[in-house]
Nucleic acid binder design. Structure first.
Lengths: 318, 318
DNA sequence: GACGTCCATAAAAGGACCTTATCGGGCGAG
DNA sequence: CTCGCCCGATAAGGTCCTTTTATGGACGTC
């Protein structure tokens, strides 16, 4: 015979209410079930825990001692289990996120707002980083998920597409090229270009496209922050090439925006460790980033973390 | 699905050893059993606790948190259960005992010695009291068992015979009555009698017997302590009537002892609350009082407390 | 003295659990 | 690159446990 949680809970209920019958009602079982449970528990422990009297039940010495201790310990255990269930139900939890600066300042805030509406208790620990650094942080376990762009980072990281982001040419409203709806790369190549640093995903997209067109990407000026480039464009220093998500663009409405020819897109992706389940909080954030929950009702959301992420490591292209 | 102790233990073993297969070996089950157990636990909690990878298992964030807390809590729970098992196995425990002074000084010490040989960790809290007080203390729950004599104390107390104790006449070796092998009550009635107090069981036995013989019990001297009466008898003050268990008799070998005519016996009994199971420690003491364990082998002794004392309240004679 | 309450027991249905056997995926060696 | 090994998942089958329904015995009450 084995000590079971069910048996212990039954014992505690009976000891507390001094009655098999009443405890049975509270536990939603019949009285004989408790008789058997207690017999099992008493056999497992090797002594009598409850003295059955005609008018009810009285714990023995040992039973009273056990009940006293068990009361605390089972409450603690239930508390522990409830905490885990809170994680699952997204009533608790923190997502550690590493995101591209353009996403962090652009679509991310609204996603966090959506997440808070559905799961007010969840928290996000945000760190901004460029793609390579995002991958490193995810790989090292420093963050739960990353938002990055660029090529597949390797077999140990899994990626799921989030959205596509257009690369725009940002130029003063009176610039001659504003007459064109799209600005060809070969035209751009002759202009003074204002670019982010070369380890960014935008730079990589541009570099690839220029190379494919037989051109060479030679920036007139580079900067770490998008707003610096915008300031330069406002001053007429040249043409800035920026992702459309960059929220700083909204603060410079007088600047013209033009897509390129060919239209260059940057694929923004969620990255996480392959073969590792996303925490429920991380799932909630991904859902919010996608615009809404993939599983609208709570029950399905609760089952979600189990069904999701059974995928194994994705094969990296050689 | 329900959280079970077995499932939690399985989870902890797997999380600790990072492997279903290894944990299965340690838990003496097969690996599929653990797969099912963990699936049940994860379903009950609503999230994934373990990430299965080709080379083993890695706890998820939630799983790691659960494992950390559970480790402590299950250890505490096991400790609690082990404590109860110690009670059952008589490796721990205290008997609160109220006993007649004659028994406490007479057969009890040897019984305690026998108990200590078998169960060295058990302790006895002894209180000496006369029969009426013993009954009261047992009834009030102040002690676990009592040793008393005399008539049935009522329906709420159960009694089991322990031994029979002869009432002896104690007289100086040169007393004329020493010529008689048994001393008739009518002879005694004419002698100066040295008796214990009137609330004692010996007094009651004598009183009943004298009354049945149409005699009147009128002590020449009364005392609380047996040794006082012995001293008086040594001084030639009269004839002391004492139970044969009184150990003080052994310290006065020069005094003569004679049974009465009719032979008066005092039935010494173990008393405990009716319908209440004796604690294992109390059972051990009763066994020792009886001269040896009623269940010699440990296994049967362990099962003993369960089978014993299923009897309901014994009917008191009206 | 009939009745209600309480726990124990018995039998049967239902479910949970474990074991054996097998699968599929990943990894390392040859 | 393929074979063999290790890992966990799955399926099927049987056993054991658990629960429910129905009933019994003991006790207290009206």
């Amino acid at each position: 015979m084995d000590v079971t949680l069910k048996g212990l809970r039954a014992f505690l209920a009976i000891a507390r209410h001094r009655s098999f019958t009443r405890a049975a009602g509270l536990l939603h079982v019949t009285q004989p079930a408790l008789t058997v449970q207690i017999r099992g528990l008493e056999t497992a422990l090797g002594l009598r825990l409850l003295d059955r009297t005609p008018q009810g039940v009285e714990p023995t010495e040992a039973g009273a001692e056990l009940a006293r201790v068990l009361e605390v310990q089972l409450r603690d255990l239930d508390h522990t289990l409830e905490n885990v269930r809170d994680l699952a139900a997204r009533r608790r939890g923190t997502v550690r996120l590493a995101a591209l600066p353009s996403v962090a300042s652009g679509p991310l805030p609204r996603a966090m707002l959506r997440m808070r509406e559905r799961h007010p208790e969840l928290r996000v620990q945000l760190q901004e980083a460029v793609t390579g650094r995002v991958h490193d942080m995810v790989r090292a376990g420093m963050v739960d998920i990353g938002i990055a762009s660029g090529p597949p980072p390797g077999p140990d990281l899994a990626r799921e597409p989030l959205f596509r982001d257009r690369v725009l040419a940002i130029l003063p409203a009176d610039h001659p090229l504003t007459s064109r709806r799209r600005i060809p790369l070969e035209v751009l190549a002759r202009e003074p270009l204002l670019l982010l640093e070369s380890n960014t995903s935008v730079w990589r997209v541009l570099d690839d496209a220029f190379a494919a067109a037989g051109l060479r990407l030679s920036p007139f000026q580079q900067a770490v922050h998008t707003s610096s480039l915008i300031g330069m464009a406002q001053a007429g220093l040249g043409i800035a090439l920026l992702p459309s998500t960059a929220v700083e663009l909204r603060m410079a409405p007088e600047l013209a925006r033009r897509p390129l020819q060919p239209d260059l897109m940057r694929e923004v992706m969620v990255v996480h460790r392959a073969g590792r389940t996303l925490s429920p909080a991380a799932e909630a954030l991904v859902e919010a980033l996608r615009g809404g929950p993939s599983t609208p009702d709570g029950a399905a959301a609760l089952a979600g973390p189990l069904s999701a992420c059974t995928a194994r490591r994705s094969r990296g292209r050689s």
